[in-house]
Amino acid sequence: MSRLEKDWETLNAYVDGELAPSEAAAVARDIAQNPGTAETAATLSSLKSALLEQADPPGDFELLPPAATDRKPQVWRAAHTAATAAVLVICMAAGAIWHWGTSRHDTANIQVTAWYQEATDIHRDWVASRSGERPPALNIPATAALTAPELRIPDLSDSGLTPILLQAEAQLGSMTGYRVGYGGSRGCRISFFVLQGDGEIPVHLTARKDGAPQALAWRHDHAHYLLLAEGMAEARFDLIARTLQNVTADWRPLSPEIRTALQKNRDKSAPCTA
């Protein structure tokens, strides 16, 4: 195999999130330093998005013929119950998430609700337009964190998500900052807002539970964070949010334990349905 072929294979595997961390780091460095590699990676990323568009059945398509719609083997119900219990245990063990949107009416609630509405529009516009829009050049190092003074991109490759969009000037209300759009190979899209200013967002994870998309917000000092996704398995979304909450506290690389947890969590999750 020639060097060219080996590099091509490696870049494809990188875009698919299939490389070991050390290999992924090497490719990410190459992407950051070599515009040609960055453009090729962007082309591959664009190709993957366009291929995903092929999974678009006709509007009248039914998974099952009408006569078969009532079949429900009991074994699946048992599995469902067990899976639900497992998710509940995981959520309880992981710690509390505060909720807003229906019962609290303090300043923070009002602010996060306003953010949520703005952020939802931005996120949905991005997801809806991705089929006709080439992703920007993938010149964002996807490993660890990009440690430029004002711009940090957390690494979510262990969860199968790579940064495919960087909105350098994002705004929600009076807060300004940036947004990173992550994409996965199974239809998942996440918007991660990083905003600066004097806000009232609680430090702890606060969830929006009374509507789609899923959202979790938190704060460290004057830095405010908001994470949005749609149709993602709840346990996976929660784990990603908790990971980002920890990462944004000190911007240290992820521990091996967390990386393993993200990988296992991703492997066990169903594709995003939105």
Partner: peptide, 28 residues
């Protein structure tokens, strides 16, 4: 998530895989 829902979450991808293989909407 029951069995139907679990299958439904793969509905679009199953169709996408089928149409990629067969290139025939009815057969897919």
């Amino acid at each position: 998530m029951d069995q139907r829902e679990r299958l439904e979450s793969y509905r679009d991808r199953l169709y996408g895989y089928a149409i990629s293989l067969s290139q025939d909407p009815d057969l897919s």
